[in-house]
Design a protein around this nucleic acid. Structure first.
Lengths: 336, 336
DNA sequence: TACTTTTTTAAAAACGTTTTTATTTTTCTG
DNA sequence: CAGAAAAATAAAAACGTTTTTAAAAAAGTA
């Protein structure tokens, strides 16, 4: 019961390997009657082609690879589902690789296990990208802006989102706004922060450095950050901010819980906004005001760009997607 | 700047292809000094082996495939992440294939693109499984109980979970319990229902057929189902249930919203329990009492079984995992 | 030193395909 | 009906590896 190969089909049908291959792949030089005989033989033996052989010879896998260090969080579910759909619509399969091992990632990409790569949160550096260019490997980054030869990108306008939130809060009358940052080395968080500061500056306001706390993108870290922030503020007599902008929804939730624990109501006493619009945001009490990433648009755009790259287009400019402000109940006018 | 192959490394180093291959793969028949020379040459040319060639020859890809029709929902994030981790720990990569196209799935599995398959929510039928057995393809199902040759499974004890919830509610004093079902053809939902009925029977109670409503596993469908159920109950003078068991958390949420809309409080007037323990369950108001799937245990078990299968073990019995009752605030004693 | 054994390297076969080139068969033309 | 053209099939090369077998070089041995 060994695996049946094209050779077996050739023997069974009485034709050569070459004609069998052509018949099976619909190359139209083969006569109708022999084609049928071959198809029957293949069916009789229940032949299924070995994809390695096929791909090795043809040089193409007809699959796109999505590389990421993790898939936890609702963002990925939606993104991956969408990527798979758009890929399939264009005749490509999607393959998801979860790894933070740079060498492994480079091996699978350079080893031609996929025709093109979609990259998120991977430690691919500039040298690697140069290598992609040298070897004409097409890739699209989803988390960093770059455009160089056969690699391009499609990212959120994090800074614009920060600015939008800043403007929204300022319009509500807030003047003293705090920021709950993520990890220091997360570029995204910094961009959002920069946007917020920019909005402040545009209105002739300044961001007080002591108003920046470290939330680490986690609920508990954010909870604790708020607690110690409040303690320090009382100690030194800082005026409390009227609004907190969190680096993501999870830390916004932590912040609200901490504020409530300290007897402060959201949004009556203090407004809080998040980033991302995760599932929970809508159901939390109070429902979170936040910025939503246009995930579908990003997925569609990423696949489109990658496909163009695959067709030989070069230096496709990076695309920047605006976020969408979702106003719910965790923000309100400044209490007068 | 064409792709550099092992041939190029052979030329560059002055050795034959065979020795280069051995040097690169650490086969220890090659002399230390030549090995070094070859390694240097490879580095100089920045050689990266073509994985198709490698895999075609070796017959193994060192990857496990996870096949699913979709990845939406928090369950998958956790499951996939865990599967990837456990695979990696055992020297295998994990590849996620999202497709509901049976032929495509069978092609990639039979085409030997992966060494073994983890299957969830795919339309693989019994003939296909027989084919796996014929071709000695190892596979593990995560959503249906089966044990046959080189295919096995690891699933939740849905019926046991239903029973557990039933017992819990009965102990709280509930006697009149309703069930909000999913789709009729979802085996899982039926098992849960059967478990619930069993618990009732065990206590000498009966399930009233009119107490089964169709929630479709969706928030809105469940919302509407409750509304019309309430209307009919009032019309016909049925006594209202004191507890609703929903087929999943999402429909539990829809149910609670509908009950609240009708002026009924949860859990004061009516208890509601869900299934799955999705993220939102904890943050919803009131926090949901539900049953949690031991996703990590399932992932670990699935990989372990698949690995054993890959090593030639046969007829591994199906594993059944018990769910964990998570008691929160959506259930209470029956009002006396 | 001359032979044998061991170590090291090279050549060739193989994995399962597709594609290019060559050969055979069929059909057309005058 | 003979020859040329067209159609259909077969043979061989190729994709990039690893592995098996063969050959060469080095090291022992007497």
């Amino acid at each position: 019961m060994a695996k049946v190969t094209i050779k077996d089909v050739a023997r069974e049908s009485g034709y050569s390997i070459a004609t069998v291959s052509k018949a099976l792949n619909g190359v139209d030089v083969v006569k109708e009657t022999t084609k049928n005989k071959i198809l029957e033989a293949a069916k009789r033996l229940d032949y299924s082609p070995n994809l390695m052989g096929k791909q090795l010879k043809s040089g193409s896998t007809q699959t796109l690879g999505f590389f990421t260090s993790s898939v936890t969080g609702p963002y990925f579910s939606i993104l991956i589902d969408a990527l798979a759909n758009f890929s399939e619509k264009n005749g490509y399969g999607l393959n998801v690789f979860i790894s933070s091992d740079r060498d492994k990632i480079m091996n699978t990409i350079r080893g031609r296990l996929v025709d093109g790569a979609l990259l998120f949160d991977t430690i691919i550096n500039d040298d690697d990208i140069e290598q992609f260019n040298n070897e004409r490997i097409s890739s699209v980054f989803l988390d960093r802006k770059i455009s160089d030869g056969s690699t391009s990108s499609i990212v959120f306008d994090s800074q614009g989102a920060g600015r939008a939130i800043g403007n929204y809060l300022i319009n509500l009358g807030h003047r003293n706004i705090a920021y709950i940052a993520g990890y220091d080395d997360v570029y995204d968080s910094e961009l959002r922060f920069a946007g917020l500061k920019q909005a402040l500056n545009d209105h002739g306001l300044v961001f007080e450095p002591h108003n920046r706390l470290a939330g680490m993108f986690e609920e508990e870290a954010s909870y604790n950050a708020i607690l110690s922030f409040l303690r320090v503020a009382r100690l030194r007599g800082y005026e409390l901010p009227t609004a907190f902008v969190a680096g993501n929804d999870t830390s916004a939730i932590g912040a609200i819980k901490a504020l409530r624990h300290e007897g402060l109501n959201v949004p009556e006493d203090i407004s809080v906004v998040g980033f991302d619009d995760i599932d929970v945001a809508e159901y939390f009490n109070p429902p979170l005001t936040t910025i939503r990433n246009p995930i579908m648009a990003q997925a569609r755009g990423a696949v489109e760009i990658l496909l163009s790259l695959l067709q030989g287009e070069q230096d496709i400019p990076s695309q920047v997607l605006p976020g969408e402000l979702v106003i719910r109940k965790s923000t309100s006018n400044i209490p007068s």
